[in-house]
Amino acid sequence: MNPGAKKILLAGLAFAAVYGLLNNLSNIFLLPSAPIISLRPQIALPMAVGILVHPLAGFITGLAGNVIGDAISGFGAFKFWNWHIANGLMGFIPGLAVYRYIHRIDTVRAFGLLQGGIVLACAAGVGAAVVLDVLFIHLLTFPASFPSWILPAFLTDAVNGFILVPVILLLARRIRLTLETRTILMITGLLVVSILATAGAITWAVLDDLVSHSAMVENFYIAAVVSVLLLVAGFIAAIVFVRKVTDPLAGLARAAQAVEQGDYDLPGLAGVSARTDELGRLARIFEQMAGKVRERERTLQRQVDELKIIIDREKQAQDVSEIVETEYFRTLKDKARKFRER
């Protein structure tokens, strides 16, 4: 086995053990969530392993970890095998989504792919589990299982991953703090805090009613879905907003680099300079500046080209002969020669 594959396998299995233990713990100490699916912050682990080590390591962590967790929780190691695959996919897909940014997540684009990959991973994982159940296991019933199993599984994993994976990647310094990532992290943080606080406050207010009136549970799920949709919509809006600010800055940086290398054609700046805001003004000033530098350089080049040393040889010969043909010069030359010979 080549060393890369060995490392992936070992890391996958080591983190699988941790993930399995955490799964067992959350089965013992239930966190408030849906009736059957417990709130599982540990889902961030296979996702982070998939990003930090390798997507396949994330897959192994999710899959084997779920096997271990089910086994020691007494559910039977392979009874819910479709959920093992679901966990594997949740570890695999985020790593795949940011595979290009394996060494550093430093742009809004990379961060958007990361968060999108996490949500997609949860959707794909839960979707795969549902499809496999319908085909082979026949445990879920429709539509009853939707609010009690499927939706909570997706929502809790997606929200946990969405919040915790960036935190882990920040601690691991895989997310580099740039103007772009700082901005999107700040907006995402505000978004998460405000939506979760609202959702939490509402849940807290109606908790007693939820327990006594099961009819309200459905409404509660609708509220949860709306919250998550708001989170996703807000996140997408934030990405668009941040890119509207940072893309022109990146364009300006590229333009500055081009000028530094003597390239004064700045087609990339046209879109920015058309803006009516401060960045547009900056871009226009920059274009003018580059134009002036170009003009100055051309003038200079012209001067250098024109830097011809024109010597009128006829006049030179005439001036020289006027001096050297004098009696004084001849005497001087003789004397100079004499004391040089000395």
């Binding site: 010597i311 009128d312 040889r313 006049k315 030179q316 001036d319 020289v320 001096i323 050297v324 010069f329 001087l332 030359k333 100079a336 020669r337 040089r340």
Partner: peptide, 14 residues
């Protein structure tokens, strides 16, 4: 131009 004359004269002065 003047330097051209100076250089030539200096050459002649060895």
């Amino acid at each position: 131009q003047g330097t051209a004359v100076t250089v030539e004269v200096s050459r002649q002065l060895e």
